[in-house]
């Protein structure tokens, strides 16, 4: 079964997403910062990454996406409320936000699972 890495500084959100994914049969690994996320990625080699934007630094998610894409072809689902919190208007972009899907929080579990299934196919 596919392995998904969830990177988000909100532990409650990580737990909630983990429950949804585990119930759907995915293996889950977790991290709560960009630095920890990169370490877990190297160790676990997940098939997909669910990534937040604002963690210790407001741009951590963008930076991690760039770092991940530079070293692997792993699909990234960016899941963030950065737009609502800051009023900023972001979306995926090949160079600065190199993610495969950009979704706003909150997200319905069914929609999240559908996006992940599509990315993994």
């Amino acid at each position: 079964m596919a392995k998904v890495l969830i990177v988000d500084d909100d532990p409650d959100f990580v737990s909630a997403v983990a429950i949804v994914l585990e119930n759907a049969g995915y293996k889950v690994c977790k991290a709560h910062s960009r630095q920890e996320g990169m370490q877990v990625f190297d160790k676990e080699q997940p098939n997909l990454v669910v990534l937040d934007v604002m963690m210790q630094e407001p741009d951590d998610g963008f930076v991690m996406a760039q770092e991940l894409k530079a070293r692997a072809k792993v699909p990234i689902l960016m899941l963030t409320s950065v737009g609502q919190v800051t009023g900023l208007d972001f979306d995926k972009d090949s160079e600065m936000v190199p993610v495969d899907v950009f979704e706003q929080k909150p997200i319905m579990p069914s929609v999240l699972l559908e996006r992940i299934n599509q990315l993994l196919q």
Binding site: E57, D59, F62, L88, F90, D91, M96
Partner: peptide
Amino acid sequence: FPTAVKWQLAGAAQS
């Protein structure tokens, strides 16, 4: 304020 963060956010913003 970290300069790179400011530049990264502006670079990523859609406009």
